[in-house]
Design a protein around this nucleic acid. Structure first.
Length: 160
DNA sequence: GTCGAGTTTCCTGATT
DNA sequence: GAATCAGGAAACTCGA
């Protein structure tokens, strides 16, 4: 189940590598993702910056792209604060507790990742809640707050 | 063709 | 009362 990580090398600052379409391509294409018209200037600038950075990426195969999972996407976003533009933030870095600050923006980013412009935070959060069963996430009894579980890895600073 | 994992979608109820 | 969030169930996609 977790073998996706074994062939998806974790790169803290190059998390969104896409051999088929760079982030620059993604975010410059309104045909693909017109929803980002509603992003703030800061958000869109940040996202474009992310795209530029990702052009250096070259190591991911098509297989690893398709095996990219939601929790890895979230983890990578958390570990790249300069790229997440405050969409996610750590509540307790050592315990792996984080908070979704901009739920709609997160959903749109994930939707872009999956080329699904109908993605909403409601659907994304449903997928996140399924990780409770597998131990990748643990429930935190606060709204929009999640915690990495024992089966999540790569989020701890000293274990990268 | 079948199966399993990982979502995605719809719906309902609870909470804010 | 409306908006938002959480969880159940079923459908869907894709790789093995």
């Amino acid at each position: 189940m977790l073998d996706s990580v074994t062939h998806s090398t974790f790169l803290p600052n190059a998390s969104f590598c896409d051999p088929l379409m760079s982030w620059t391509d993604l975010f410059s294409s309104e045909e693909y993702y017109p929803a980002f018209e509603h992003q703030t200037d800061a958000d869109s600038n940040c996202l474009k910056t992310s795209g530029i950075k990702s052009q250096d990426c070259h190591s991911h195969s098509r297989t690893s792209l398709q095996s990219s999972h939601l929790w890895e996407f979230v983890r990578d976003l958390l570990l790249s604060p300069e790229e997440n533009c405050g969409i996610l933030e750590w509540e307790d870095r050592e315990q792996g507790i984080f908070r979704v600050v901009k739920s709609e923006a997160l959903a749109k980013m994930w939707g872009q990742r999956k080329k699904n412009d109908r993605m909403t935070y409601e659907k994304l959060s449903r997928a996140l809640r399924y990780y409770y069963k597998t131990g990748i996430l643990e429930r935190v009894d606060r709204r929009l707050v999640y915690k990495f579980g024992k089966n999540a890895h790569g989020w701890q600073e000293d274990k990268l």
